[in-house]
Amino acid sequence: MKRVLFIGELPNIAVHGISKSNYVNIAILREYFDLCIIQEKIQLSDHNRLRLSKVNLLLSNILQLFGTRAHFLYLVLSISIFGIIKTYLYVCIFKLLNPLSSVVIHIHRSDLKGFVDNDKLKHFVVKNLLKISTKVVVLDKKAIEDLSVFFVETKIMVLKNTIADVVDDNINYKQRFDSRKCLFISNYIKEKGILDLIAVFNDINGDFLLDCYGSKTDTELYNIIEQGRSDRVSINDQILSNEKMKIIQGAYVLILPSYNEGQPLIILEAIRTGLPVIVTDVGYVKNMLPPYYPYLLDLNNIQVSLKQCMNRIFCLNYEEYYALSLALQNFYSENFSYDSHKRELLKIFQA
């Protein structure tokens, strides 16, 4: 049995979209390969911060890497200066020790091109990193054009995200329609648009409510978010997976007014159950929804477009709402199913 060495984050330390996606992928790979894991144990609050603990973790992981042999190295590219240098070191050391083995780099973000533009150091590191990789995995075909400036397109493979959890198909659409409840489920990060969302809710008229769930990543930001709490807006801690499905099934709409996204798992979790979403047209979000989806936010005018989308979606009658829910469920089944994801993932790791 061939061995896959995975280096990356998992949700037992930091719960976010990439760590949860990693968990799904390594669970599949474990069925077919001898899987070895070097876990990057980085707390969510330390993301985007250079701390001594992260340097110590890097050195510890490199020591483990020297003692490991594998047919494949599988890792996620972190979009930060420290992240790309760290990934470059991992790949160079692995290829030195395993010259005939393959390197699979997974890019979960949609902003890599913007990250390296007009920065010679970033561009040099990323270009050489992707050049020595065997395969590069992206979330959407839209990414292929952006990455073609670094290397030949034949190395790029598209692997859409998916949800592995079993979902209860017994959804009460009428109860959901009558709830008038809006959801925000994401870590409390400024770029997720949480401040815009709260500002709109405390300004717009209507009988709808907003329940927010997420992990606190920054004390100062969280204190600002807390100030937006009201009779119509609740601010809650992160929820567990088994609780999340119950909350999603009892809501009218999910709202995610982000400034930067790749292919958010929470959108897939919503549309898999037919829950309508109001989301920013950023990253690969538009391709996660049916063509001409009418509830996309304008990145350059989020608060105004959010008010407009909310007014439109809450004007739907039940038949229109139900038809929208079924269309979203069908789109998920046709484009993001677990079985399809599994087949495509295993193709990537074919010899």
Rank of each mutant, 00 (worst) to 15 (best):
residue 226 E to C: 11
residue 79 I to S: 07
residue 220 E to I: 14
residue 180 R to C: 11
residue 309 C to R: 09
residue 33 F to S: 10
residue 242 N to T: 15
residue 346 L to A: 12
residue 325 S to M: 03
residue 15 V to M: 06
residue 138 V to A: 06
residue 339 D to C: 01
residue 134 T to V: 03
residue 219 T to M: 08
residue 189 I to A: 14
residue 69 R to I: 03
residue 211 D to W: 01
residue 132 I to D: 02
residue 296 L to T: 09
residue 156 I to H: 00
residue 155 K to G: 04
residue 105 I to N: 00
residue 27 A to N: 15
residue 159 L to G: 12
residue 81 I to Q: 05
residue 52 L to S: 09
residue 249 Q to W: 01
residue 232 R to Q: 11
residue 65 L to F: 03
residue 160 K to Q: 12
residue 293 Y to M: 07
residue 46 D to I: 03
residue 48 N to D: 10
residue 170 N to L: 05
residue 111 D to W: 11
residue 307 K to F: 00
residue 233 V to G: 07
residue 306 L to V: 09
residue 173 Y to Q: 11
residue 76 V to K: 02
residue 25 N to A: 10
residue 33 F to T: 12
residue 301 N to G: 10
residue 279 V to L: 03
residue 277 V to W: 02
residue 271 I to D: 05
residue 96 L to M: 13
residue 51 R to A: 04
residue 139 L to M: 15
residue 204 I to H: 06
residue 11 P to A: 09
residue 305 S to Y: 02
residue 109 R to T: 06
residue 122 K to M: 00
residue 319 E to S: 15
residue 323 A to D: 10
residue 293 Y to L: 07
residue 244 K to G: 00
residue 130 L to H: 03
residue 184 F to G: 02
residue 223 N to E: 14
residue 314 F to R: 09
residue 110 S to W: 00
residue 209 L to S: 13
residue 301 N to T: 01
residue 93 I to M: 04
residue 349 F to Q: 08
residue 164 A to G: 01
residue 53 S to E: 14
residue 246 K to D: 13
residue 141 K to W: 07
residue 190 K to P: 00
residue 5 L to N: 05
residue 77 L to S: 05
residue 187 N to K: 08
residue 238 Q to M: 12
residue 162 T to C: 09
residue 135 K to L: 10
